[in-house]
Amino acid sequence: MKPRVAFFDFACCEGCQLQVANLEEDILGLVNLVDVVEFREVLTGNAPDYDVSFIEGSITRPEDEARLKDIRSRSKLLVSYGACAATGGVNKIKNVWGNIEKVKKEVYGKDAGMPHLATYPTKAVHEVVKVDYFVHGCPITRSEFLKVVKALVFGTTPDIPEYPVCVECKMCGNECMFDKGGVCLGPVTRAGCNAICPGNNVSCEGCRGAVPNPNNNAMHEVLAKYKLSVDDIKRQFTMYALDPEVGK
């Protein structure tokens, strides 16, 4: 029997589920491999339980936390996909304010106290429920998503890079962003995007989250070499909620 798969979204731009739609002809192959039983944006229908649930988006309210826990309880495997789910993504910028009431007031002004606008500091999915696998990136890389789906269907563990973006950048032959006067998070960010931003002359913003065991010493050496300080990259760390351990 084909695995029964569902897609859910929380606070996000839904750009990662769009990448699933953007698989184009490959979707037709995908529906031969799995049975998509729930996917609100694409189809009408729902199901009582799932072999694999794909969760997109961050958790910012008690009712969303309850909904996520309910989905988890009805799912054999749960995959957190896209930066908003995997790290909290840009949604965690609001946590930098340190005062959620000020955040609400900035956006809703005099209406900020309305009960249905309640929100709390952003959480990634794994900060609420157990996550079995991650698909990183903002947005996710389509080929990596397919790799994870195929691994799950065939009962193997998906092979996700555990080295930094710098490795891929060098393999692509890109000129280093630091050499071009940029401040790049490539040395401490998990690879898997094929260094797409440096390849387009844009510094890595860390959307795939920190590489496991980031080499902070190497990052410090790079900063020293280019006469930059930790402060120069600190604000960039908050863009995609890079692990607070990075850059210490």
Binding site: A11, T60, R61, I93, E106, V107, T119
Partner: peptide, 10 residues
């Protein structure tokens, strides 16, 4: 009922 994300504050 969707969760607001607060971009104007971000």
């Amino acid at each position: 009922p969707e969760a607001p994300r607060f971009f104007e504050a971000m």
